[in-house]
Simulated assay, not measured.
Amino acid sequence: MDFNLSKEHLELQAKAKEFTETVLFPHEMECEENDGISRETHQKIIDATLAWGFNAPNHSKEDGGQGFSIFEQTILNEQLGKATGAIWDALWYPSYPMRFATQAQKEEYLIPTCQGKRRDAYAITEADAGSDPTQCMTRADKVEGGWKINGEKWFVTIGDIADYILVHAHVDGDSTKPTVFFVEKNLPGVELKRTPLYTHHFAFKHPEYIFNDVIVGEDKVLGEIGQGYDMTKDWFVEARLGIAARCVGGAIRAAEEANKFAAERIQFGQPINNFQAIEFMLADMGVEIMAAKSMLYRLSWEIDQTGDRKLNHAKAAALKLYCSEMVGRVCDKAVQILGGRGYMREQAVERLWRDTRVDRIWEGTSEIQRVIISGQIKKRGLDIYTGW
């Protein structure tokens, strides 16, 4: 078995690293100090993303994207994850389910989104529906010529800059008919409820939206009636892989910052990395990253080889669980090694420590990942996770 990266993959890795460090890193403190980036900065990153050929990596070239494989997306996301403030989200990944769009929908939504001319947001979570989307109260009722949507959505990430929203709703209020609708933000009845503040200083916002008798046409259904949850699970697989890759990247940067500091910080006449308390923390960080990266690369490669949606969903849960919890441990140690400096917001390790806390929550909490994993063990046996 040859686990070496190909020449092309090494070139992509180097290119993604250079993009992250030269295009994204310079805006980290702007994001931190202003709780977001300006329109001018965002446009600069959009222009750079197009110039570097990193727009819509997850969609086909025919639809205006780059047609990256899952493994290639992992290589890119790992480097992007080193940037604080989630500035990586300025590089757009149009929602995975849009590949099931009709040609007319692709021309109206997907293709211009891949080209950076439009931006989508995905709305699933509600006040009483998070880990269990069957509890969604947002509903779509048939009316003459289309559908009437009513409900409220929380945590609509990048909802502030998106110009349309993919809304997960239940047709006729029936949880067995989950369906995704294209909803333009400027339609009558689409109301911004509020924009909460969060622990991290994210490049963009996570607003809450109300949909009050919003009318959309027949042509605004994505996929089929009742197909919404399956498409949402596909979106979760891609999102969880992206989170896992960015967690590995964030952990690597935190470990590198801590290692550099420990080699240069002199106390009691010697560098602190000479003290066992510090060198053991660095050793543990290195091993955790090695294990997570091995799992990430192996699984990303495997998913490229199989179309088994249920198996991919099961393994992505394990990956997201491990990597999101790993980065928390690594960043915590990095903050500890830097001591008082590690608690200063000007330090990348402090921002990563704060930024990555959400990775154990969004796109499925650690507890939900464990529910998925344990359920798969009951159905398929331990071999699904141990029989590689």
Rank of each mutant, 00 (worst) to 15 (best):
L192Y: 05
W147L: 02
I266W: 13
T157I: 11
G65Y: 01
D163P: 09
A283K: 15
A239N: 13
F211E: 00
G250M: 04
K233F: 08
K315L: 13
E72A: 05
Q276E: 15
Q13S: 11
V183P: 00
A348H: 03
E18I: 15
F19L: 07
Y209W: 14
G65W: 00
E184L: 09
H27L: 12
I45F: 01
E350N: 13
T102V: 12
V287T: 15
E238P: 05
V371F: 11
I87A: 02
L12I: 09
G228R: 00
L241C: 11
E288Y: 08
T199Y: 12
A51K: 15
T20C: 09
S294W: 09
I372G: 04
Q369R: 12
K333R: 12
D219W: 12
R380E: 10
A129G: 10
Q347W: 05
H200I: 09
H206R: 13
G387A: 10
T306D: 14
P271V: 09
M137T: 12
Q105M: 10
H201V: 02
K205N: 09
L110C: 05
E302A: 09
E152K: 15
K7Q: 15
E288N: 14
M344V: 10
E363T: 10
M231R: 02
Q305R: 13
L282V: 09
P94W: 03
L311R: 10
V156M: 08
F275I: 04
C31S: 09
Q13D: 11
